[in-house]
Every structure is written in structure tokens, then in C-alpha cells.
């Protein structure tokens, strides 16, 4: 009994130490985690839920975290897995709501009234919307690889770690994902492409 109690107190002390470490890592990574979650979900409130869910999972399994891996890579793996779970849950719910779409099966997308916004903000919002639609039209694996590379700026090796796959697969997913996104943007928002093209020249 005394032995068990001592162990519980020892563990509580270790818990205190690892909690402080976790909080510090959380502060360092939450902005990046939010960007990733936002690009994965395409919506602020869903992104916040996803980040919250991921950090709770991360904290619960923090004792399993291997310090030889950057915390962000470990966390992003949790974020992407939590996102896949959420998408699966949503797919089940969506089957019923799809019947309420247009005659051609299309969904109605809510569009904000842009008349009150300054030009720069409108432009930024448009880019975000077009990009998000492009990302959402992609296969999940390509989408994740592209987001990790281009939103998070991760190296292929780190992406391979997050996605639990080989560097060759990452290379191929990024390339195919970017090509898909490029085709999507060129067909849906050619003006955006031209603008960025001018900026690059």
C-alpha cells in the first residue's frame, strides 16, 4: 500500500514536470498547428476544434512521445489523424444532407457580402477561398502533403515522418497534389493565377 502511494506521488511529480514541458511545447507550436488545421478544414471554428482535439490527444499520449522526433512532427501526425477521423465521421453524416442539395447534386456555398470590405481584404479573402476550394477538391493524401510542404514549410523527410511513409511517396504526392491544385486554380480562378504570375515576373 505504502509502495503504491509512493509510486503515485512520484508519478504526480513527473506529471508536473512533463505538464510544464508540454505547455511550453504547446505555446511554441499552436500557431503552426492552427494553420495546418485551418487548411485541412477550411474553416476557423472547425480548425479550433481540431487543434483542441489534437492537443488533448497529444497530452494523453505525451509519455509515448519520442524526443528524437521534433514535437511539431509528432503533433502534426496527431492533427492529421484527428482530421481523418473527423472527415470519416462527417462523411457518415453527410449522406443524409446530400439529398437536400441542388438538382445537379451541387452544394450551396455561403458567400459573404464583400461590398463593405477594402480591396486588399477582398483580394486576400478571394485567394483564401479559391485556394481552399482547390485544396478541398484534392485527395486527402495529396492535400496533406501539399499543406505540410507549402503551408508549414516542412522538409520532405519531416513530411515522411508525419505521414508515416517514404520520401519517394512524399515527393510524388506533393508533385501530383500541386499539379492538381494548379489545374483547379487555372480553371476556377484564372485571374488569381495571372496576378501571381505578374508578381513573380
Amino acid at each position: 500500500m505504502a509502495f503504491t502511494l509512493t509510486r503515485i506521488f512520484d508519478r504526480a511529480q513527473t506529471d508536473q514536470g512533463s505538464f510544464e514541458e508540454f505547455e511550453k511545447l504547446m505555446r511554441q507550436t499552436q500557431k503552426q498547428a492552427f494553420s495546418l488545421a485551418y487548411r485541412l478544414t477550411g474553416n476557423v471554428s472547425e480548425a479550433e476544434d481540431l487543434v483542441q482535439d489534437a492537443y488533448i490527444r497529444a497530452f494523453r499520449f505525451f509519455y509515448r512521445y519520442d524526443r528524437s522526433m521534433p514535437f511539431s512532427s509528432w503533433l502534426f501526425r496527431i492533427v492529421t489523424n484527428a482530421h481523418i477521423d473527423a472527415v470519416r465521421r462527417k462523411c457518415k453524416l453527410r449522406t443524409s444532407s446530400l439529398d437536400q442539395g441542388g438538382d445537379d447534386g451541387s452544394k450551396t456555398i455561403e458567400v459573404m457580402d464583400s461590398s463593405a470590405l477594402p480591396d486588399a481584404l477582398i483580394a486576400e479573402r478571394d485567394v483564401n477561398e479559391d485556394l481552399q476550394k482547390g485544396l478541398d477538391s484534392m485527395n486527402q493524401e495529396f492535400k496533406m502533403a501539399v499543406i505540410l510542404a507549402d503551408v508549414e514549410g516542412m522538409a520532405y523527410e519531416e513530411i515522411a515522418e508525419v505521414m508515416n511513409t517514404s520520401i519517394g511517396t512524399v515527393r510524388s504526392r506533393i508533385h501530383r497534389g500541386r499539379k492538381h491544385l494548379k489545374a483547379h486554380l487555372l480553371s476556377t480562378a484564372p485571374a488569381l493565377y495571372e496576378r501571381y504570375c505578374d508578381e513573380l515576373l
Partner: peptide, 23 residues
């Protein structure tokens, strides 16, 4: 491809105020 990469790097909107504390 360079343009696509640049478009992807567009800044994401901010989280709602107080999100860090709530987290």
C-alpha cells in the same frame, strides 16, 4: 508550380480572440 506554391503560402485567417487561453 512556383505560383501554386506561393498561393498555398497565403496567410491563413487568425483564430478567434482568446483561443490560446481557451486551449
Amino acid at each position: 508550380l512556383k505560383i501554386t506554391k506561393r498561393v498555398c503560402a497565403v496567410e491563413v485567417p487568425s483564430a478567434t480572440p482568446g483561443f490560446e487561453e481557451r486551449l
